[in-house]
Amino acid sequence: MVSLPEELQAREAAARQRVQELEAEVAELALRLEKAREDLSRLEITRETVVQVLAELSAAEAEPEVPARDAPEPNETTAPHGVGVMMVPPWREGLVVAVLPDVYRDIVEIIADAQGPLRAKQIVPRIGLPTTTGKIEGTRGKLKRLVERGWLDEDAPGQFTLARRGPGRDRANS
């Protein structure tokens, strides 16, 4: 017959062994998860870059050729190799929302589906972000950029709607 202390010691050793095995599995899964996250991040960046390049090529094809003597000074829209590349192109006739980076596209689609003007703090949870001050301010910056580039209008301070386009507008790309 085995004594109670010996039996408890044997069970403790078995439990300790199981804990070590599970900790090893957790460590392996953590490494696999980190690798998967890196792969996802690279794919997202690649897709966003391709969308950007396609949008720029589309914009370049739509613009008339400028003679060399009238060439504009280099700026964020003409810089080579992605240096200073404009992520949110100015709206123009025929340009679709798909050319925008994901978060900007999501914002425009949310505003398009809304019954009326929306504020940044109403948009943040709809794009899957926590409603912290930093996320709200970051989203407000994106909204302002979309207004600058003609995708949205800000009818009243902080209230954003889809841009109304057409004759009689006093702002370009609005």
Results as ranks from 00 to 15, higher is better:
Glu109Met: 08
Leu22Thr: 11
Val66Gly: 04
Gly82Thr: 10
Leu143Glu: 01
Arg140Glu: 02
Gly116Thr: 03
Ala172Gln: 11
Ala55Val: 02
Ala59Met: 08
Asn75His: 01
Arg37Glu: 03
Thr77Trp: 00
Arg37His: 06
Glu21Tyr: 15
Thr133Trp: 12
Met1Ser: 15
Gly141Ser: 14
Asn75Ile: 00
Leu8Ser: 07
Val124Pro: 05
Ala68Asn: 11
Pro90Ile: 01
Leu33Ile: 01
Asp102Leu: 12
Gln17Arg: 07
Asp170Thr: 14
Glu44Asn: 10
Thr132Asn: 06
Arg105Leu: 04
Leu54Lys: 05
Val51Phe: 05
Asn75Met: 00
Gly82Asp: 09
Gln115Lys: 15
Lys142Ala: 00
Leu40Met: 14
Ala14Trp: 03
Leu57Glu: 11
Arg165Tyr: 03
Ile123Asn: 00
Pro89Asp: 05
Thr49Arg: 06
Leu4Thr: 10
Ser41Phe: 12
Thr133Ala: 08
Asn173Leu: 08
Glu56Ala: 04
Trp151Lys: 08
Glu109Gln: 09
Pro74Phe: 07
Glu93Pro: 02
Met1Pro: 07
Leu146Ile: 09
Glu44Phe: 10
Pro64Ser: 13
Thr139Pro: 03
Met1Cys: 09
Arg164Cys: 02
Pro130Val: 02
Glu61Gln: 05
Val51Ala: 11
Lys135Trp: 09
Arg126Ala: 01
Arg69Asn: 03
Gln52Pro: 00
Arg145Gly: 00
